Amino acid sequence: MLTDAKITTMLPVTDVERARRFYADRLGLREIAVAGDGTRIFEAGAGSIGLRQAEPGAQSAQTALTFLVKDVEREVGELTGRGVTFADYDLPDLKTVDHIAEFGDEKAAWFTDTEGNILCVHQNT
């Protein structure tokens, strides 16, 4: 059944090696495989992330994936220490303080990878 299937999120990247370094060095994820087509696979929680070669502009303008974490402040601090740059917002319906937005029972912070994919760390409070 699909409800029991392990999921791999495939992200489009224009420079696989640059993206590989970001996911390994900046995010601290462990590379577990290289597919026959050159897709780099990283372990992430109960699933994985695949970095697949794509043409420039293949990235979405929306959040591509989120990491559900227990302590978003701690994660933002650790990732910032590794050189990750977080987006800040000051909009009528979305405002960040120290890179983190709070809405309802959720806290979230967004950043992009080297390829322009939008990623998020979030916590349910």
Rank of each mutant, 00 (worst) to 15 (best):
I41W: 08
F22W: 13
R52K: 14
A46H: 14
T8L: 15
T9C: 08
F22Q: 04
M10L: 12
E73Y: 12
P56F: 11
V72W: 02
G116C: 03
N124V: 13
V34C: 13
F67P: 04
A46D: 12
H99Y: 05
S48L: 06
E102H: 14
N124R: 07
P56T: 13
L79H: 04
F22C: 05
V69G: 11
N124W: 01
R18N: 05
G81C: 04
G77S: 14
T63K: 05
D37H: 06
T66V: 07
I100K: 00
L29D: 07
Y89E: 15
D88N: 06
E102F: 14
G50Y: 02
T39P: 01
F86R: 01
C120K: 07
I41K: 09
W110I: 09
T125P: 00
P12L: 08
T112A: 05
T114V: 05
E17S: 08
A24C: 09
I118V: 06
T39D: 02
M1N: 13
E17Y: 10
E102N: 09
T66K: 07
R18G: 00
G38H: 08
G77A: 10
A61T: 15
A87I: 11
Q62F: 12
V13A: 11
D15N: 15
V97E: 09
G104D: 06
G116T: 04
F111W: 13
A35R: 14
V72H: 05
Q59D: 10
A5M: 05
M1W: 01
T112K: 05
C120Y: 00
C120I: 01
V72S: 00
G83Q: 02
L79N: 12
G47T: 13
I49R: 07
D37F: 02
T112S: 10
G81D: 02
K6S: 00
K107A: 00
A109W: 06
V16P: 06
D98W: 01
T39M: 08
T8E: 15
A5L: 09
L91N: 07
V69H: 13
T3K: 14
R26A: 13
A87M: 15
D71E: 05
K70S: 10
G38F: 12
A87H: 15
I100C: 00
I49P: 12
G57D: 09
E17V: 12
V76E: 08
D71L: 03
L51T: 04
E115P: 02
L91A: 03
R21D: 03
L119M: 03
A33V: 10
Y89N: 10
A46F: 13
A87Q: 15
F111K: 01
Q53S: 09
A33M: 10
P56H: 11
P12Q: 02
E17R: 14
H122T: 01
D90K: 12
A54R: 15
E31S: 01
T114W: 01
R82L: 03
R20H: 09
D71N: 15
V121P: 00
Q59T: 11
Q123R: 00
G81T: 13
A19C: 05
A5Y: 04
I100F: 04
E78N: 08
Q62W: 13
G104C: 02
T63D: 10
D4V: 06
V16K: 07
L119F: 04
A87C: 15
T39V: 10
A24E: 13
A44R: 10
A109G: 01
I49V: 15
K95Y: 02
T125Y: 00
F42L: 09
V121I: 08
C120G: 04
R52G: 11
E115G: 00
